[in-house]
């Protein structure tokens, strides 16, 4: 239960400092309102709705998820973590934190999005639900390992989206497709390959992250 203890520490610290949450919430609001303003009274086509949802999700993720490692590195507390836990524990704890953050963030975004965009109607709910779960997991894993890299690279804020985007691009492309499938109401059987690819992405990212985290973590 050591990763959970690390998660609790981060959660407690987040309550005290509000390092990620505040900017994350504001970012979601800003991104959504920019899109709303630019659309105005126009009707937007279905696949564009799905794409815009993922634009909001990607940029919101980029504003908040690097916190897990960057905050430790910025304040110089990563040495403590070195001394009290094994690398796998640390990665698991940080991943847990980011997973919860991603799920919270995306639930908020999806609810706001379906309230604000009339065109956003899910016809195959199960498909959307599975897409949501799998892509959130993938998003959390990839953004955690990239956060570890940039924290050691001297925490350049602008570098985070630059490094994450190529890694997340397959995930985003598949998720956009699956989201528009579930809006059209494609049957579950027709989308099985795409779901499998998404699951594959999650598994591969998870394995490679655990394999490589040692190298990043040890100076």
């Amino acid at each position: 239960m050591k990763p959970y203890a690390l998660f609790k520490k981060d959660y407690h610290s987040e309550l005290r400092t509000r390092y990620a949450i505040n900017s994350l919430v504001m970012f979601i609001i800003v991104a959504l309102s920019v899109i709303l303003f630019s659309i105005g009274n126009e009707k937007i086509p279905q696949n564009l709705t799905a794409g815009l949802l993922w634009v909001v999700i990607f940029f919101s993720a980029m504003s908040g998820l690097s916190r897990a490692f960057v905050s430790e590195e910025e304040r110089g507390t990563s040495l403590i973590l070195h001394l009290i836990a094994a690398p796998t524990t640390i990665f698991s704890g940080k991943l847990l934190f980011n997973l919860i953050l991603v799920f919270l963030m995306n639930i908020i975004i999806t609810i706001l999005y379906s309230v604000l965009f009339e065109e956003f109607i899910i016809r195959n709910f199960l498909l959307f639900f599975l897409t949501f779960i799998l892509s959130n997991i993938g998003l959390a894993i990839a953004s955690t390992i990239i956060a570890a890299i940039i924290s050691k690279a001297g925490a350049k804020g602008t570098l985070y989206p630059v490094l994450s985007f190529p890694i997340l691009l397959p995930l985003i492309l598949i998720s956009v497709m699956l989201t528009s499938y579930s809006m059209v109401g494609t049957s579950f059987a027709d989308a099985v390959i795409e779901l499998a690819v998404l699951a594959c992405y999650d598994v591969i990212m998870l394995t490679i992250s655990y394999m490589l985290f040692d190298f990043i973590w040890k100076d």
């Binding site: 390992i145 990239i146 890299i149 050691k152 690279a153 490094l163 190529p166 890694i167 691009l169 397959p170 690819v197 992405y201 591969i204 990212m205 490679i208 992250s209 490589l212 190298f215 990043i216 100076d219």
Partner: peptide, 19 residues
């Protein structure tokens, strides 16, 4: 650091290429 981190990144990027 540059060598290590860029090596790690190129491996992560490499596994996304098949996609």
């Amino acid at each position: 650091k540059r060598a290590t981190l860029s090596a790690v990144y190129s491996i992560i990027a490499f596994v996304t290429v098949p996609f």
